[in-house]
Design a protein around this nucleic acid. Structure first.
Length: 595
RNA sequence: GGUCCAGUAGCUCAGCUGGAUAGAGCAGCAGCCUUCUAAGCUGCGGGUCACAGGUUCGAAUCCUGUCUGGAUCACCA
């Protein structure tokens, strides 16, 4: 890396010029701002105390030294305390030659010593997937891709919340009001079918709640005391004691849901190396909790419930087992974490889970540590922000939930009408056209979500949010297709590309800008991997594409008569296309050959 | 009330461990297709970086306080 070389040489310069031994941490190198001449800039302010001279003079002296001692430095200029260095064309061309034909340029082995298990998606089997899940899936999947590209060993796992009181609610509702209907008979997607019964339960339970309130029962206790809730709790006890009828119903309904989920996952392009089910891990959690009780780490209350005392950590007490012995969310998470650790013994256990569960993961880590699990410190909660709608949060009760399948359909439809309006599907078969609409629709949706920092809450406006121009997925896809078209045209003209690019060709500023962009791709991937941020990749792709379009618009390629220049520009386009494709792959977005 | 997160252009968002005159896109206005895909390119207007202090040669960035919004503190997950 040129930056590292520069840092070393700058340290040497300070030694030579001022007889000072300077920590390389103090050497600040940044990309030169566009309005100044240069490629890289050294900020000399922090070095003044070593030179004991004015900023301009210090910068000039260091610049002089670097130019004389580094062949990569062609020239330099000084603006205030900024030493702007112009890197020689030869260096950029050299980089270009060495990397243009790499299959997976940008990928590295840097992180190969680290193994990671990443959990994301984690659906409940009582509701269909919605926009919030989409963000979770896209972020999780993309982070997994990025980590892999950075060289780390990655296992993607899903954890299905397939048991618990909430699941019993939809089961109970189906039992009571289902009339033996099935998704097949009602011609519905299985997850939607089951989800409707969950809603039905909540509705009926609300009615019962209202009645109890009328009778004067305390408001905050009512929700737990309705006849329906009692039945649901009883069902959960039955389930945990493996009562046959309950288990059969449970399996039947969950299978409906899985069929539905599979369709959604497929369409989103999401898959996992392993799927955990809480029904298979909660017993382990229970066992760990009971052992903790035996060892006196946990304690039991008079009603038989089991708790962890976290007052030493300035937290409250935390329930781990209900009085009837059934387990709660965190109990199963304890079991799941243990199992996952046993299965993989990974260096890091990542959980992509919404930021509303930050407290939950803090507590989980603390309890695991209390229970003597040293690996608990390897648990990292990647807390992503909520997706908000113009009216605020999504609320199922108010019918403002944006359904995942519906949204994808709408995206495809919008892609279709926009594409047709632009008259871009000449020569496409119906199947090809449909595939293109899907690619563009998915690209728009995925990019829209992934371009924002995962940590932050984001706003999704169903009517306005998704554009196809500007900083969008389709714009990036379009540029890729454009490059492809260019390469095709070159082939039609029987132009044979050559790897041989003379070192003395004149590089246009727009071309250099592009090369610099390509140069920074690998470090961008590393950075994105370190901070778990697909947004970095998205922004990178947008910048790259923007610069390419400027180059494309300003410089003629196929009309260039000098073969070396023609060849170089085509090669540069090809390389750029490859990097666009790779970065979009990291985001889980496909690029079309034509659009 | 405690804890955590956020507040940057009319709107949606970038701005990495402090560095140059705070950037994109959308929306608005004005240009560019007989020439490589106009889902593009060029230009214009648009800002008290919530507010007030502090640290620093230098603060949107770090610290403190205030205001505003959100999350969380469940025998829901």
């Amino acid at each position: 890396m040129i930056e590292e070389i520069l840092i070393k040489k700058t340290v040497a310069a300070l030694e030579k010029l001022y007889d000072q031994n300077v920590d390389k941490q103090l050497i600040q190198i940044q990309k030169t701002k566009k309005e100044f001449e240069g490629d890289l800039t050294i900020v000399v302010f922090p070095l003044l105390r070593f030179s004991r001279k004015k900023p301009e003079q210090t910068a000039n002296e260091i610049g002089e030294y670097l130019q004389n001692n580094l062949e990569e430095i062609q020239k330099f200029n000084v603006v205030k305390g900024f030493l702007n260095l112009v890197i020689s064309d030869k260096f950029w061309l050299n980089f270009f030659l060495q990397n243009q034909n790499k299959k997976k340029y940008g990928y590295s082995e840097k992180g190969k010593d680290e193994s990671i298990v990443i959990e994301f998606s984690s659906p409940n089997t009582n509701k269909p997937l919605h926009l919030g899940h989409i963000r979770n899936n896209l972020v999780g999947n993309s982070i997994a891709n990025i980590l892999k590209a950075s060289g780390r060993k990655v296992q993607k796992v899903n954890l299905v919340n397939d048991r618990g009181i909430h699941i019993c609610k939809s089961m109970l509702a189906w039992q009571m009001w289902g009339n033996n209907q099935t998704p097949e008979i009602s011609n519905m997607k299985g997850d939607k079918f089951v989800g409707d019964f969950y809603v039905k339960f909540e509705k009926e339970n609300k009615k019962e709640t209202a009645i109890l309130i009328e009778r004067g029962v305390e408001k905050d206790k009512v929700a737990q005391q309705t006849p329906l809730m009692e039945k649901a709790r009883k069902m959960l006890v039955n389930w945990e004691s493996c009562e046959k009828e309950t288990r059969e119903l449970w399996e039947k309904m969950n299978n409906w849901v899985y069929k539905g989920f599979d369709k959604t996952y497929n369409r989103l392009g999401i898959n996992f190396d392993k799927t955990y089910y809480e029904s298979e891990t909660y017993l382990l959690g229970k066992e760990i909790v009971l052992n903790g009780l035996k060892e006196g780490i946990l304690f039991k209350k008079d009603d038989g419930s089991v708790w962890a005392d976290l007052s030493n950590q300035k937290l409250d007490e935390k329930l781990l087992l209900r009085p009837d012995g059934t387990s709660v969310y965190i109990t199963q998470d304890i079991g799941t974490a243990q199992l996952r650790h046993d299965d993989y013994n990974a260096d890091k256990l990542l959980y992509v889970v919404g930021n509303e569960q930050i407290y939950h993961f803090n507590v989980l880590k603390i309890i695991l540590e209390k229970l003597g699990r040293e690996w608990a410190e390897n648990i990292i909660h990647i807390a992503y922000g909520m997706v908000e709608l113009p009216h605020g949060k999504m609320k199922s009760r108010e019918g403002t939930v944006v359904d995942a399948d519906d949204l994808m359909n709408e995206m495809q439809q919008t892609a279709k009408s926009t594409t047709e309006e632009l008259g871009k599907i000449e020569g496409f078969s119906a199947a090809e056209a449909n595939e293109l609409f899907e690619t563009i629709g998915q690209g728009a949706l995925k990019y829209f979500i992934l371009k924002v920092d995962p940590k932050k809450n984001m706003l999704f406006n169903p009517v306005e949010s998704i554009d196809f121009t500007g900083n969008t997925g389709p714009f990036i896809q379009y540029t890729y297709a454009r490059i492809n078209s260019l390469i095709r045209k070159a082939e039609e003209k029987n132009i044979t590309l050559s790897n041989n690019i003379p070192g003395n060709i004149n590089i246009h500023p727009k071309e250099k800008q592009l090369i610099k962009n390509l140069y920074s791709f690998p470090e961008t991937i590393q950075q994105a991997a370190e901070i778990y941020s697909p947004a970095l990749i998205a922004n990178y792709a947008f910048n790259l594409v923007k610069d390419y379009n400027q180059f494309y618009q300003e410089i003629s390629i196929l009309r260039e008569e000098n073969f070396d220049l023609l060849n170089f520009r085509l090669k540069l386009s090809e390389f750029t296309g490859k990097v666009i494709k790779t970065s979009m792959e990291l985001l889980g977005i496909k690029v079309p050959e034509r659009m």
